[in-house]
């Protein structure tokens, strides 16, 4: 309740806005909205047409829905494989980001950690580095990190840990590590703001009750920070799901490509095979999760924009 205190006098505008300036803004936004929706609809409609239909009448409606386009995209164009890769990479990255960042944010805001402030600024500095600047150094680092044959801890003749052919280039794990690293500064920043709104007395109360730092974090602060965690998870999901540049540079194996890169391969392929409508089906597959997340969690996404910015 207290968080929305500043909004208590705010009444949402219903119907057309008043004032000439507002009306102009409304018209521009409405035009923009209509353009965006039309583009999306056109992609969806086109994905259900045949190539001949498309070229004879680009704005027409499908005579009969061509669900086969989706089948082609999913199987022949390997969108199924790309989707699986994207799901694995995105979910793992988001999970790692949220786990690591929430612990860091907790340590920065709620413990006596002596280097809390420098650490916070260190993370903050991470947000200032353009990601594309990291491409070359990251590539060199990951390229050099490979284990061809490493055996550790033998018991008699048996090796307990035996690593063979472990690479970070052209590997989903490598991509997950990169995404996690890139996402941590932003996530720590947002969660730090969120944790600051939670009373420190809760940590003290838990300490007196018999909790150690880990229990306090896991049993008290993590459940309480659920709204913040969901928000950062959504933002990171959207970024990682749509990420193209790193996925393109670090993955060349066809079997490991993520959706955005896979879609580009499909686009290249369609230039020669004249299967444009399957490409549109692939586009729909790519944007579907994003779109669903926006529709279901719209409220949380808009609220999330101010997470941590307003003190509770």
């Amino acid at each position: 309740m207290a968080r929305n205190e500043h909004l208590k006098d705010y009444t949402p505008t219903r119907g057309l806005p008043s004032g000439l300036g507002n009306k102009i803004i409304f018209v521009i936004l409405a035009a923009w909205g209509a353009f965006s929706v039309m583009s999306l609809l056109w992609i969806v409609v086109t994905s259900l047409r045949t190539d001949q239909d498309l070229f004879s009448s680009p704005w027409g409606l499908p005579s009969a829905p061509q669900w086969v386009n989706y089948k082609i995209a999913w199987t022949i164009a390997k969108m199924g494989q790309y989707t699986a890769n994207s799901v694995i990479v995105t979910l793992s990255s988001v999970f790692c980001m949220v786990v690591i960042s929430s612990m860091a944010a907790y340590a920065i805001t709620k413990t006596d950690f002596f280097a809390a402030k420098p650490l916070f600024f260190y993370f903050l500095a991470g947000m200032a580095v353009p990601a594309s600047l990291l491409l070359v150094p990251l590539f060199m680092t990951l390229k050099n990190f490979n284990i061809r044959d490493l055996a550790l801890f033998s018991v008699g003749d048996y090796w307990l840990i035996h690593i063979k052919d472990f690479y970070l280039i052209d590997s989903r794990l490598g991509l997950i590590l990169i995404y996690t690293t890139l996402g941590i500064p932003f996530t720590v920043f947002v969660l730090t703001g969120f944790f600051r709104t939670l009373p420190t007395a809760l940590a003290e109360s838990a300490a007196v009750d018999g909790a150690n730092e880990y229990t306090t974090f896991y049993r008290i602060f993590l459940p309480l920070s659920k709204p913040g965690l969901i928000t950062v998870a959504i933002f990171n999901f959207l970024y990682t799901w749509n990420e193209y540049q790193f996925a393109l540079v670090f993955i060349s194996n066809e079997r490991l490509k993520t959706l955005p890169v896979g879609l580009y391969s499909l686009a290249l392929a369609t230039q020669h095979s004249n299967n444009w409508t399957a490409l549109f089906a692939g586009l729909v597959i790519l944007m579907l999760p994003t779109l669903l997340i926006f529709i279901i969690l719209e409220d949380r996404i808009t609220k999330g924009l101010t997470v941590g910015a307003v003190k509770a």
Binding site: P199, A201, L202, E204, S205, A207, V208, D209, N212, L224
Partner: peptide, 19 residues
Amino acid sequence: PPKDRDIAMVFQNYALYPH
């Protein structure tokens, strides 16, 4: 540490766990 001191504390703002 506080947990091993065998004390219980009541805080000004109650510090009840909201969840």
